[in-house]
């Protein structure tokens, strides 16, 4: 059986003038449908570049990305991205930000009323209906990220790409949003590829964790299965041996074998 999303021998080299920097080297892995996969690594190792390659925002140097056995090399709503810094359009209201995506993706498939209902439905999924008429500047960072998530979900993507979605949030808000993402993944069974540098977040949310070595020429160092049953409860897992073991493995990888040498 061919995998749902396949990253096939991806190399990425940035060329600037006469100097070429190899960022990613020979990245190969596959994601099954409805799987939640995290990519973890130190900052600067090329995680975001890898996500942008899957999103189609950055072209590969060699290799390719296959989604349902078809090569994807340009951006599209089938691989919706939740950006690190929310990327909501500040001149549109929360509703209009989501509606813009809905209108563009479903302009032929859904009637005006259906698109309106679908927009509200997705805002409801992330519990943001109450702020639908507010502008992004008027809501908190966590709320913005929720709206970004609603916008991405509204596109009904085949793969949901999360680029350190909770990186800029405080710990409490982050935990709250992680629970939301888990609940949504449980409910919608979407395929998710998430970039993170938070070990707890990776273990808590993922079915598999892809650990990347340090750049330049970063590659996949190790892939760890997280055999924890869902739904997962943050508090119960705190003492779970499997959870702790997984956490230990990732920590060892990041801080012993691939310690970040350069100044961050």
């Amino acid at each position: 059986m061919t995998p749902y999303l396949k990253l096939d021998h991806i190399d990425k080299t940035f060329v600037r003038g006469s100097t070429a920097t190899v960022v990613l080297k020979d990245i190969t892995f596959a994601i099954e449908k409805s799987e939640f996969v995290s990519i973890i690594g130190h900052s600067g190792c090329g995680k975001t570049t890898l996500l942008n390659i899957v999103a189609g925002l950055v072209p590969v140097t060699t290799g390719g990305v296959l989604l349902e056995n078809r090569e994807v090399d340009e951006p599209g709503p089938d691989r919706a991205v939740v950006f690190q810094n929310h990327s909501l359009l500040p001149w549109l209201t929360v509703y209009d930000n989501v509606r813009l995506a809905v209108d563009k993706v479903f302009c032929g498939a859904k009637s005006r009323r259906e698109r309106h209902a679908w927009t509200l439905h997705n805002l409801d999924l992330v519990q943001m209906t109450h702020a639908k008429d507010k502008r992004p500047a008027e809501i908190s960072g966590g709320m913005k990220q929720r709206v970004g998530l609603a916008r991405a979900l509204a596109m009904e993507p085949k793969v949901l790409l999360l680029d350190e979605p909770f990186g800029a949030l405080d710990a409490l808000t982050r935990a709250h949003l992680q629970d939301s993402v888990m609940a949504l993944h449980q409910k919608l069974a979407n395929t998710v590829l998430m970039i993170t540098h938070d070990v707890d977040e990776a273990v808590l949310l993922s079915d598999r964790i892809v650990m990347m070595t340090n750049g330049p020429a970063a590659c996949i160092g190790e892939v760890l299965d997280v055999p924890l049953a869902r739904p997962r409860k943050r508090l119960e897992l705190a003492a779970n041996t499997t959870y702790l073991k997984c956490r230990q493995r990732v920590l060892e990888f990041l801080y012993e074998r691939h310690r970040f040498v350069e100044a961050a």
Binding site: P75, P77, A80, V81, F83, K104, M155
Partner: peptide, 11 residues
């Protein structure tokens, strides 16, 4: 960021 949003939406 806005360009990326536009690209993903295929505006």
């Amino acid at each position: 960021d806005y360009r990326n949003v536009a690209a993903v939406l295929r505006l």
